[in-house]
């Protein structure tokens, strides 16, 4: 086993730190949203009359962005493309780790091609979302600095990822791939090996760490908050079943 270099040591440190902060901060948020009492019933009606119906309603929002579809088609389209591409990419990054073996399965190239399509779609839709913030007067007016930052950050991650396929040579990419697999394994079972040293890869990796660090403190927490939104997740049955939260203070409704 080769001894670890300094770059690896630094990245290991930051990977674990960021991972820990992410998990703890998100868990705390979930705890907070889950335990804060909701003093009164608040479903936006017409609302489902059963718990199953309310769950389906949330699912419709999460899987199809139903309300957004009703309110603004372009935003829905750009946003939906972005999220689909984003989630497919995350999923494929994990999957890749399990299918990367020697020899490579015959369909590995197709797998990579799908990933590249997702990457392009993601970057393009992010660009359109960004343009929307610049061009549409109302959206420009409400946009904050952080709204641009998050779009640009994810876009850069996408661009760096695509560069791995198009900017560096195929040979260099194979080196990265071959080093990445044991490195990732090492993260999980603490048998550390050196991180791929290709600078394009390191930029991609660093930006991802930044994103993961930023998520719990940003509006991206909507991926948790949407499940706790009382106007969407509550059952419309105040008369049928008494809704009473003794721990709710007699304060604001």
């Amino acid at each position: 086993m080769t001894p670890l270099n300094l770059t690896t040591a630094i990245f290991l440190f930051f990977t674990y730190t960021v991972g820990l902060i992410f998990v703890i901060a998100v868990a705390l948020r979930i705890y907070q949203y889950a335990t804060t009492p909701q003093p009164i019933k608040l479903p936006l009606t017409p609302a489902p009359l059963t718990a199953g119906g309310a769950f389906a309603r949330i699912l419709g929002e999460v899987v199809f962005f139903k309300s957004l579809f009703k309110s603004n088609k372009p935003t829905w389209l750009f946003g939906y493309l972005f999220h689909i591409a984003f989630f497919l990419l995350i999923f494929m990054h994990f999957l890749r780790h399990f299918i990367y073996a020697n020899p490579l399965p015959w369909w590995y190239d197709i797998f990579v091609d799908i990933g590249i399509v997702c990457g392009v779609v993601m970057v393009l839709s992010l660009f359109l979302l960004l343009m929307r913030r610049v061009v549409v007067e109302r959206v420009k007016f409400i946009s904050l600095f952080s709204d641009y930052i998050i779009l640009i950050l994810i876009m850069l991650i996408g661009l760096a990822g695509l560069s791995l396929n198009y900017v560096i040579s195929p040979a260099a990419l194979t080196v990265v791939d071959n080093q990445l697999d044991p490195y990732m394994n090492g993260l999980l079972n603490f048998q550390f090996t050196n991180i791929p040293s290709n600078p394009v890869f390191l930029i991609h990796y660093t930006l991802v760490l930044l994103l993961v660090l930023y998520i719990p403190f940003s509006k991206v927490m909507h991926f948790v908050g949407i499940f706790f939104s009382p106007t969407r997740n509550m059952v419309d049955n105040p008369e049928e079943e008494r809704y009473y939260r003794p721990n709710a203070k007699d304060l604001s409704i």
């Binding site: 948020r29 309300s67 957004l68 309110s71 603004n72 935003t75 946003g79 929307r132 549409v136 109302r138 959206v139 409400i142 946009s143 904050l144 709204d147 509006k219 927490m221 909507h222 948790v224 908050g225 949407i226 939104s229």
Partner: peptide, 8 residues
């Protein structure tokens, strides 16, 4: 926390 300022 969760408004993304999508503008919808």
């Amino acid at each position: 926390d969760i408004c993304v300022r999508c503008g919808a």
